[in-house]
């Protein structure tokens, strides 16, 4: 694999005596759609927190576009193009939807000249009619869309979508999937963490499975569903 966009080089993360990530390595090419799955507590969100900079790692390196970002604070990584959305939406409650997008645009997005403005992003995501509402006036799915729209406003090269679809109806899942596909077509690399298998399997070109802090499988969606180790991780023996 030549020149990966993101290279995770055997990172380890401990919480006290608990080993959350055990020398996990992962390489992601530019433009890829990667699904990251695993049972609850397998380390998916911890991995994302380490990549985005919310948590420091105990060992290992993270390279983005060949640059070592392991010690960079989260906001610097965002400026470089690593942007994540949150599992539980964390909107800026005192600002309107449009102003919510203004923050990443001003602090990270404008560093990259090319990209959509706040209103264009809202139109693409289908939130333009709500631009001047406060987040408290949004529905659950609109809240998820705001989370994605705000991440978009940082003009990411790599977008990490952390369970953007949990709790949504099947039509709403399709809605979010369509948005993610469109973002990928625009050249944004996407890591999707999801429990809804139908969505991950349809979206991903490649799936990586974590279990108890270890990478236990990797392959195309078709390979993953037939993998006995994955079955064992999810269902037990």
């Amino acid at each position: 694999m030549a020149d990966p966009l993101l290279e995770i080089d055997s990172i380890t993360k401990r919480f006290g005596g608990f080993l959350a990530l055990d020398r996990v390595s992962l390489r992601i090419r530019a433009g890829e759609r990667l699904g990251l799955i695993g049972p609850n507590g397998s380390g998916k969100t911890t991995l994302i927190n380490c990549v985005s900079g919310a948590l420091p790692t105990d060992a290992g390196r993270i390279l983005f576009e060949g640059r070592d970002v392991t010690r960079l604070p989260a906001h610097r990584r965002t400026r470089l193009g690593i942007v994540r959305s949150f599992q539980i939406p964390k909107p800026f409650a005192s600002m309107t939807v449009l102003e919510n997008l203004g923050i990443p645009l001003e602090y990270a997005g404008l560093a990259r000249a090319h990209g959509a403005g706040a209103m264009e992003i809202l139109t693409m995501i289908g939130l333009d009619a709500k631009a001047h509402l406060r987040p408290s006036g949004l529905t659950q799915i609109e809240m998820r869309k705001l989370e994605l729209a705000r991440a978009m406003a940082a003009r990411p090269k790599l977008l990490i979508s952390d369970e953007a679809m949990a709790g949504l109806s099947s039509a709403e899942v399709d809605d979010i999937l369509a948005i993610l596909f469109r973002l990928n077509e625009q050249g944004i690399t996407i890591i999707m963490i999801e429990h809804i298998m139908r969505a991950v399997m349809r979206f991903s070109k490649r799936v990586v499975v974590l279990d108890a802090g270890n990478r236990i499988a990797e392959g195309t969606p078709a390979e993953i569903v037939r993998n006995p180790a994955v079955e064992k991780a999810y269902l037990g023996e």
Partner: peptide, 14 residues
């Protein structure tokens, strides 16, 4: 003020 984690992840040097 609204959300420190989200702000940091949106590029704000909190």
């Amino acid at each position: 003020r609204d959300d420190e984690d989200a702000a940091e992840c949106m590029g704000v040097p909190t």
